[in-house]
Design a protein around this nucleic acid. Sequence first.
RNA 1: GCUCCGGUGGUGUAGCCCGGUCAAGCAUGGAGGCCUCUCGAGCCUCAGACCCGGGUUCAAAUCCCGGCCGGAGCACCA
Length: 505
Amino acid sequence: MEKKKQEGERKWPELKNAEIGSVVTRVAPEPNGYPTLGHAKGLLVPFIYARIYKGKFLLRFEDTNPRVEKREFYDAIREEFKALLEGAERELGLSPGKWDEEIIESNYLPQMYSMAERLIEQEDAYVCTCDAKKVRRLRAEGVECEHRRNPKERNMELWKEMINGGIPEGGAHLRLKTDMNHPNRTMRDPGIFRIVEAEHPIQGRKYRVYPTYDFSISVMDSLTGVTHAFRSKEFEPHVEVQRTILEKLNLRKYEMIQFGRVTVEGVPLSKRYIRPLIESGILQGWDDPRIPTLRGLFRRGITPEAISRFFYDLGPSKVDSTISMDAIAAYNRKILDSVVPRYMFVPDPVRAVVENFPEGLKATVQVHPSRHDMGYREIKVPAKKGVAVLYIAGEDKKTLKEGDVIRLRGLSTAVVRSIMPDEISLKHISEKKESEKVIQWVPADQAVPVKVIKPLSSYSISLVGGFGEPAMKELRPGDMIHLIRYGFARVDSLDRTVNLIFSHE
RNA sequence: GCUCCGGUGGUGUAGCCCGGUCAAGCAUGGAGGCCUCUCGAGCCUCAGACCCGGGUUCAAAUCCCGGCCGGAGCACCA
């Protein structure tokens, strides 16, 4: 499918110190949950820059806190990121739509250990055995503790004990020696390694000492050749810490770039909010269409293309932005509209008996109103003694009164004869009239039972039942469709009914 | 409290580093019209913004100073 991609493209701001062909960026997720819409900017911004500059894009698992990380999350991140990047390639023409290399940070632990030892050797780091509360207090007050003055031999001894298990979790941590009076409090002797007694999803029980974020990110970015490291704005005060680490270890420097956070109006993105809803059974799982996890969104029929285009237009700005699901739906609608087949669906059906119905009259409906190449479907409507039985939507029935002329889409023009509580009586007329109301319908004898699930909030869904036209029984899970005068939907499953999840209007 | 970062139409942004071409571009949303056997999409038209106050300058969205507002961080999490 050819897309018009070239004209009117907005340009992203230039990167500092960037040359075509030599830019390396990365996304560095922690495998501690299912990725949400909140992760999309963190993925797409570095990816887009890597492709604009024809450079390299890395996926790095930042797995240095085994307490919260799980194997399944690595896979979930790979799957969702893959889908999104492939969507970005199709929609934005940024190729290849995948990461060039995958890096598991925990595999670099031995290297990081030796760097830690170098810092101890240089007297740029010391083991502190104060408890966490005291450390926090002293950092706030800008007061040095006694461990700071320990000789390097003593520090090395304690460090080895941390590694060998001689010190329990929480009993000691390695701190960078900077300045306990630094105005930026994150700079006051930050912790760089600590003990975590938990099984690591990849390394198992091999290690018990893990680096903290500031240490691992600076070392890893430098070691893996990253030239432009993106992270969200909350890390701004850490830039100074990370630069200091690079300097003390004499490692290659790179650009550190912060971008603003994205919040979705009325939609909580945090795992902290979502997890209890899943554990309590209110949500079915991490792919529940009510929540903004990427898989939830995909299941709901929000396409990777729409999400990539949306974040492309959003740009890499440093300002925090509040977006709405409606805006994402608008992007999705535009992408889907030109490619998705149309079907007639009647929610809350009511029988419509059409008299004077010609023998052999059948409907020819276009699969897509502006795309003849997508073909036509025929719907045969049997008539017994000049009477055909159809279903129309309950909502449409409500708006009709006796004498109205309606157009049964693609089939017949009819006049309303009478309206009963559970049925409406129509009469086929041959002449076409102007400005008649066009409604959708389904032949009663071939009506396909359809259920439409509409996500309403993270707690609620609504269920709408009705009948679809005969061709709907050919649908397969994953198909995206448009229900005429109703909205876009994705086929979720098929059993005795066709089960759809409503995307948006 | 301290440190840092932002503040351009309803929303999201470009421009700011290297002042003029910006009487501010784009997208989305809004209004109106055309088209349409969908209340969708498409096409056309319209309305809509440089946080405030000083200063520098022939000239400021862009530079400087002061204020106001918003966000983030101040963990042995990332």
